[in-house]
Design a binder for these strands. Structure first.
Length: 572
RNA sequence: GCGCCAGUAGCUCAGCUGGAUAGAGCAGCGGACUUCUAAUCCGCAGGUCCGGGGUUCGAAUCCCUGCUGGCGUACCA
C-alpha cells in the first residue's frame, strides 16, 4: 500500500461509497473538464452509467458514456472516449489504466492494491453498511396485506406480506422515513356475511338445524368463533333480534380474526405501524364529503340514482361508480377517501402492494389521486403475482369459499419462517411463483435459504475456532490488507463493495429479489474460497488478514439476511 | 373481444431498465471429507432467449404482429 492512503477521502465518508459510485462521480465531472478544454462541445449530459463487464478482459468497470454522448456531439464514440480519458480527474489514483474498446466503451482497470482498502468502509459502518441516504428522509408509506378480517390469512397472502415487509425494510435502509400500514376492510358486506355465518353456526350450537347458506363462509374457524361466543355470552344472542345478533357476531368475529391475523403476521416476522380501519373513513361523513369535493371539481356526474366518477378523464377505459343506485358508496369510493387520507397525513410517496388479480384497478386509482391533485409519481403500485401452491410437485387445490386452504400459520409451522420468506423473496414479485411445501421444508441443497445461512454459520464457526486458538477477531486497523492478493479475495472484496449498490437498486426499483440473489452470489464465492484456501493455520499475519475478510463477509451476509427478515444463524 | 402479466438449459428462475462471447440453482454424469461445519466444493454436459418483422453502432431487453399460459374485464372487496 505504499504511495496510497495519504490522500484517501474514502475513509472520511459517512455513508457507504462503492467503487461504482466513486467512478460515477468522477465521470460526472469529466465532460465539464472536456468542455473547459474545448475538447468537446458543451451539451446536456446523458445519465452516467457504470457497468460491471462480464468479461474480465474488459476491466473492472466500464462506461458507455462516449457512445451515449456521440449523437449529441456528432463525433465518433472512440474519439470522444479518448477525450474523456484525457480529462479524467482521478485524484486518488484508483484507476490503474483505462482502455477504449469495442464500439467505444471505456474500460477501467482498478489498481489491484486498492481493492483491500475498500474493506475499511464495511468494517467501520457495521450494521449500517449498505444503508444510504438516498431517500433524503422523505416520508413513505407502504400499505400491504390489507386482507379483510373474514378468515385467517392463507398462503396467498403470505407472498404479499413478505414482499411489503421487505420493501419497507429496504426503504428504511435507504433513508426513507417509512411507515407500514394494514388497511382493514371491515365495512363492506363481506363483513356482514361473516356475522351471518357465525350467527348460523351459533344457532346450530343450540340445536337449531337450519340449512347453512351456501354463500356463507364454510371454514371450521367459523364454528370455533361461534363456540367462543357461546362460551362468553351463553344463549344471550338468541334472545336478541337477528340484525342486532348478527352485528354482534360481526364485531366479535372480526376482532377475534384480526387478532389471529396479527399473531400470524408477527410469527412471520411482519409488523405494522398502523392498522387503519375502513370504518374510520365513514366517520363524520368522510366519504360523502370526499364525493362532494370531487363533485365540485367536476369529476362526478349523476345517472339516475347512481353517481359516477369520470376516471376516463385520466385514461381509464370507463367511468366508475362511486355511489350505487341504492345510495351505498362503493369500495372504490372508500378507497379514494383512504388514499386522500394517506396524502393528508403528509406522505410524499405512497406504495400499495396488491395481488395481481387487482391489476384492473390500477388505472382508476391513478385517476383518483390525480383528481385529488396529486402527481401520479406520488403513488406506486407493486403487483404480487399469485402463488401456485404445490406439494411434491402436485398442485394443492384451494378454495377460500369452501374453507379449503393452507393457512399462513400452517406454512410457518410446517416449513419455518426463514425458508418460507426466502422462497417467496427469491423471485421477482411480478412473476408467477411455484411454492412447493415439501421442497421448502426440506433441509437440503435443494433449498437455497440454507445455502446462505450455512455460509453465515460457517463464518461464525471460523470465528469461534480462531478465538479458541488465541486469535482476537481483527478490525481493519489490526491487519495488513495488502496481503489479500488472491484472485478469489479480490472477487470477494468486489462483491462486498457492491452491496450498497444492490440495496440502492433494490430500493429504486422496489425489487426485493435482488437481495437474495446477491446473498447467494456472495455465499457461493465464499464457499468456494473456503474450500480452496485456509483462513486459520497459515502464516499469522495472513491468517489475520483473511480472518478479517471473512468477518466482513459474515457481516454483509448478516446485513443482507436482516433486510430479508431471515435469521442469520451462528450455528447450523 | 379488450386489457394487464408472463414465455430464456430437462425443471424453477436471474439477466443490473439498450451493451461486448446469454447466467445461476435443481435434476443428470464424474470426482473431493485424518483439516476452519460435506446443508460445502471441483469438473462435465445442457440454448432457435416462443415464432415473424422493425428501430440502431448494438436487442433476451424497445416497437409492431402472431402463438401459448395465467389473471382481469361489477353498482364484489
Amino acid at each position: 500500500m505504499v504511495g496510497l492512503g495519504a490522500n484517501f477521502s474514502f475513509f472520511t465518508e459517512g455513508t457507504s461509497i462503492s467503487m461504482k459510485r466513486k467512478l460515477t462521480a468522477i465521470l460526472e465531472r469529466t465532460p465539464h473538464e472536456c468542455f473547459a478544454r474545448n475538447l468537446l462541445d458543451p451539451c446536456d449530459l446523458p445519465p452516467i452509467e457504470v457497468d460491471l463487464p462480464r468479461e474480465e478482459a474488459h476491466g473492472d468497470y466500464a462506461t458507455n458514456l462516449a457512445m451515449t454522448l456521440a449523437p449529441l456531439q456528432r463525433k465518433k464514440p472512440r474519439d470522444i472516449a479518448e477525450k474523456i480519458v484525457a480529462c479524467l480527474d482521478d485524484s486518488e489514483c484508483v484507476i490503474e489504466r483505462t482502455e477504449i474498446a469495442g464500439p467505444g466503451f471505456i474500460n477501467f482497470f482498478i489498481r489491484k492494491d486498492y481493492w483491500p482498502l475498500l474493506l475499511e468502509s464495511p468494517d467501520r459502518l457495521k450494521e449500517d453498511y449498505g444503508r444510504s441516504d438516498m431517500g433524503e428522509g422523505k416520508k413513505v408509506q407502504v400499505e400491504f396485506v390489507s386482507a379483510n378480517p373474514t378468515g385467517p390469512l392463507h398462503i396467498g397472502h403470505a407472498r404479499g406480506a413478505v414482499t411489503g415487509d421487505v420493501i419497507a425494510r429496504i426503504l428504511e435502509a435507504s433513508g426513507y422515513d417509512t411507515r407500514r400500514e394494514y388497511y382493514i376492510n371491515d365495512a363492506g358486506n363481506q363483513m356482514n356475511l361473516l356475522g351471518t355465518s357465525i350467527y348460523h353456526r351459533y344457532r346450530e350450537l343450540f340445536g337449531h338445524r337450519e340449512p347453512y347458506p351456501e354463500n356463507c363462509y364454510q371454514g371450521k374457524y367459523i364454528i370455533d368463533l361461534a363456540q367462543k361466543i357461546k362460551d362468553k355470552f351463553g344463549d344471550g344472542l338468541l334472545k336478541k333480534d337477528v340484525d342486532e345478533a348478527v352485528s354482534a357476531c360481526t364485531d366479535y368475529g372480526a376482532a377475534e380474526i384480526m387478532e389471529g391475523i396479527k399473531d400470524d403476521l408477527a410469527a412471520f416476522g411482519v409488523t405494522f405501524d398502523c392498522f387503519f380501519s375502513e370504518k374510520e373513513l365513514y366517520k363524520d361523513n368522510g366519504v360523502e364529503r370526499l364525493i362532494a369535493e370531487l363533485s365540485e371539481k367536476g369529476f362526478i356526474y349523476q345517472d339516475g340514482d347512481t353517481l359516477w366518477f369520470r376516471t376516463t378523464a385520466f385514461g381509464d377505459e370507463k367511468d366508475r361508480v362511486v355511489v350505487r343506485e341504492n345510495g351505498e358508496p362503493t369500495y372504490f369510493a372508500a378507497d379514494i377517501c383512504y388514499h386522500k387520507n394517506k396524502f393528508d397525513r403528509g406522505f410524499d410517496l405512497v406504495i400499495d402492494i396488491w395481488g395481481a388479480d387487482h391489476h384492473g384497478y390500477i388505472p382508476r386509482m391513478y385517476a383518483a389521486i390525480q383528481a385529488l391533485g396529486k402527481k401520479p409519481e406520488a403513488l406506486k403500485i407493486v403487483l404480487v403475482q399469485l402463488v401456485n401452491l404445490l406439494r411434491d410437485g402436485v398442485p394443492v387445490a384451494m378454495s377460500t369459499r369452501a374453507g379449503e386452504f393452507v393457512t399462513l400459520r400452517e406454512v410457518i409451522d410446517e416449513v419455518g419462517k426463514d425458508a418460507a420468506r426466502y422462497n417467496f423473496l427469491m423471485r421477482r414479485s411480478n412473476s408467477h411463483l411455484d411454492f412447493d411445501l415439501e421442497l421448502a421444508k426440506r433441509q437440503s441443497n435443494e433449498n437455497p435459504v440454507y445455502y446462505v445461512q450455512y455460509a453465515h454459520a460457517r463464518i461464525a464457526s471460523i470465528m469461534r475456532t480462531a478465538k479458541e486458538r488465541g486469535y482476537s477477531i481483527p478490525s481493519y486497523r489490526d491487519v495488513n490488507p495488502s496481503l489479500l492478493t488472491l484472485d478469489e479475495e479480490r472477487e470477494l472484496i468486489k462483491i462486498i463493495n457492491r452491496f450498497p449498490d444492490v440495496v440502492e437498486g433494490s430500493a429504486r426499483t422496489l425489487e426485493p429479489h435482488r437481495i437474495p440473489f446477491y446473498c447467494n452470489e456472495l455465499a457461493a464465492v465464499f464457499h468456494s474460497y473456503y474450500n480452496k484456501h485456509r483462513v486459520i493455520g497459515v502464516e499469522e499475519e495472513l491468517s489475520l488478514a483473511r480472518l478479517f475478510l471473512v468477518k466482513i463477509i459474515g457481516l454483509v451476509l448478516g446485513n443482507g439476511l436482516k433486510l430479508l427478515g431471515v435469521t442469520a444463524p451462528e450455528r447450523m
